Structures are given as structure tokens and as C-alpha cells.
Amino acid sequence: MSRTIVDIHILQTVPPSNLNRDDTGSPKTATYGGVRRARVSSQAWKRATRVAFDDHLDRAELGVRTKRIVELLAEEIEARKPELAEQAGELAAETMKQVGITLEKPKNRDAPESGYLVFFSRRQIENLAGAAIEAADAEDAGKALKAAKVKDLADRDHSVDIALFGRMVADQADITVDAAAQVAHAISVHPAETEFDYYTAVDDRNTEEETGAGMIGTVEFNSSTLYRYATVDVNRLADNLGDRAATRRAVEAFVSAFVRSMPTGKQNTFANRTLPEAVVVQLRDSQPINLVGAFESPVRELGAAGRVKAASDALRDEAREIERAYDETPVAAWVTRVGPDTAALDDLGENVPLADLVDRLGAQVATRLEQR
């Protein structure tokens, strides 16, 4: 059976910023090719992508990740049957126990919580609430819920974000969902140094002192041209969702959201929101291929050429060398780019606006799913 893999390669320049901090507040970094690079973790960009799904998908197709799963389920039970308001919390807790989620009592809250974040689709919450309501009149609600096979209800009707990013349930491995998408840590294509912004703030009410400030401090930042990469296994996504039309929507939403999203770290301080200089999407039938090797030798500024041009040339050359050496020619490829510095990337695919790229990719995905 042929595979359908979607690879997304992005070059994106961000000005002074602190998108993703470590435990000391410094911008995250990584050593690659023997030099220190700016880094944005995969988790940070996955979170930004999930938030951006709200602009591309109906909320009914999305899930909720929370420790307060009992509270969420109790609210759904009460909304559907208000006369169960007093029992809703107890019914919700028993339902989660029958699913296999271990609960614990937090210090400052009445409702029990799971010991870790759990990810459920809205449809799963609705199904579990329906089972809980039916079990409300039973002599033993626990037995009634077990007979209703609530664990099975928690393992079907997955949301798009669960199908893409997966779900790990420590207590119940049999309802774990394998992720269909992988997101790499974004790294700068060049060496990057952390800098410090020394700032002062004036006390508006203190007009008597001629010198001094109400507050002083420092903020760490860097600026970079990032290489970002993500890949989607469309076959696995289709298996997770069980619906070809939903799979196409999920692929289109993921590409759009991943391209346009950005982590919000220190956004108010730096106003660093940008869009990519270049997006290359390759449809493959063999395996995902991360092209980060293009930047193992770090990009250096060469006169007036700039980083974006050098990075575009390097990415084009790496992709063509991979094709030559391994016979890994994509089934189809498209490029969305800005300005003349990215012109080399036209060698990798058809140059189209992002909306057209997403539409054409979706059509290819739909055709290949029909042929499975």
C-alpha cells in the first residue's frame, strides 16, 4: 500500500524576540553544526498550531487537553440534564474511573483531577456524558458504566488535534493514539547570540525626582532566520479519524495553521509576529525527509546577499541532492515565497499563493485516499 507523506519546510525570519524561554527566562538554544543556534521547541509550535486551528476548523472537530476532565464532563452532564446537577460531579468522576483515568484530590479544589493532562475530543465528552446520564438511575452506576463500555467511547470519534498530535494515557495504553504529525524543533540557519535589553520604567506619579526610574531590569532576546519542519503521515491520520473528508480538512488546516502560527512568548514586548519568507510543501510516497542538513554548515552573511537568499539556495541544493542520491523525487511539490531572495526555491515546485497551495495539496490528498 503506498504511503502519503506531507513534508512542510519553512524559512522564517523573526526580529528581536524571545519566542520560547528556558527555565531561566533565556531564549532556548541548541548546538548544531558545532555552533550555537536559536531554537524554538516543537512543543511550543505545536501549541501555537493547535490554538490557530480555531481559525480553520469548527470547534466541534477539536479537543480539550486538561487535568480538570471531571469538571468538564460534569458540566456537560449538567447541561444536558439539569436535574442531575447535584450528582454530576460524582457521575463524572465514576465515569473517568471506568475509562481508567486515575484521579486525585487537589488541595484547593472540590472536584478531583487527573494526575496528568488528558486529551479528549468534544464528541468523546458528549458520548461519555450520555453514558453517565443513562447510568444515573442504576443501582450501581459503576457497573452500569462498565457495561456501557465507556472505555470504548473514549477511544473513538477522535478530534482532528488528537488524530494529528496523538494522545498518551499513562494509565491506559490501550486508548493511546499514535500521532500522525511530527514537528521538529525550529533552529536558526546561522549562529545566534543571546542579547540583553536593559530597560527602565518611569513612575507617572513621581514628578519630584529629576533622576532615576521607577523600575529597571533586563530582558534577553535574539533574532534569527529559522528553518522549521513538520510532516504528516496522511494514512495514519485517516486511520485515526476514520473519515476521508475529515482527513483532507485536517491536512489543510494543519498546513495553514502551522505556516501562519507563532508562539506568543514575549509577544507584547517585541511585537515580533512575522510570516515566512518561504514555504515548501512536498508530497511523498516513501518516508518523511527533514532537510535540516542544508544548514549543518551555518549560513554566514555574504555582503549584501543576506541570510534568506543563502538559506534558500542551501535548501534548494540539499533537496536536489537528496533526490539525486536516493531517488527521492516527491510526488508533487509547491512553493509559496516572498521576494527575489527566495527565487531558487522555484526549482523545487510550482510557485503559488498559500491558499492555492493548500487547495492543491488537499485535492491530491483526497485522490490518494480514494485509491487506498
Rank of each mutant, 00 (worst) to 15 (best):
314 A>I: 09
131 A>Y: 01
365 V>C: 11
267 Q>S: 08
214 G>R: 05
48 A>E: 10
304 A>E: 14
44 A>I: 00
5 I>A: 08
25 G>K: 10
6 V>Q: 11
27 P>G: 05
194 T>S: 08
170 A>F: 06
195 E>A: 13
101 I>R: 08
211 T>P: 11
253 A>Y: 05
113 E>T: 07
264 T>M: 11
40 V>I: 13
326 Y>S: 14
226 L>G: 00
17 S>G: 07
293 G>H: 11
309 K>Q: 11
168 M>E: 01
165 F>Y: 13
242 G>V: 02
274 T>S: 10
365 V>R: 01
7 D>A: 02
197 D>S: 09
110 D>P: 02
320 R>C: 12
273 R>D: 15
255 V>T: 02
324 R>N: 14
27 P>H: 07
42 S>G: 14
219 V>S: 15
133 I>W: 01
35 V>R: 06
110 D>S: 15
154 A>E: 02
227 Y>W: 01
364 Q>F: 08
12 Q>H: 08
321 E>V: 13
33 G>I: 04
219 V>P: 10
367 T>Q: 12
225 T>F: 04
364 Q>R: 14
77 I>T: 10
12 Q>C: 07
248 R>H: 09
186 A>W: 00
37 R>T: 06
267 Q>A: 15
226 L>S: 05
259 V>Q: 03
98 Q>G: 05
218 T>V: 15
333 A>N: 02
50 R>H: 06
6 V>S: 10
143 K>S: 12
235 N>Y: 04
229 Y>R: 01
122 R>P: 04
238 A>S: 11
246 A>W: 02
188 S>V: 00
105 K>E: 10
233 D>S: 03
96 M>N: 09
60 A>R: 13
171 D>V: 07
25 G>F: 06
63 G>F: 06
289 I>W: 09
196 F>A: 15
262 M>P: 03
173 A>N: 11
305 A>D: 14
266 K>E: 15
206 N>W: 08
72 L>T: 11
95 T>E: 07
49 T>I: 00
168 M>Q: 07
121 S>H: 07
74 A>C: 03
58 D>A: 02
256 S>R: 12
216 I>E: 12
49 T>Q: 03
27 P>A: 10
155 D>M: 04
110 D>L: 14
306 G>N: 03
20 N>A: 02
244 R>A: 15
152 D>Y: 07
145 L>V: 08
124 Q>C: 01
17 S>K: 03
220 E>H: 11
78 E>P: 00
292 V>Q: 13
154 A>I: 00
317 D>P: 07
325 A>Y: 12
158 H>R: 13
83 E>V: 07
170 A>N: 07
172 Q>W: 00
350 E>P: 04
41 S>W: 04
55 D>Y: 09
203 D>N: 12
164 L>V: 02
242 G>D: 01
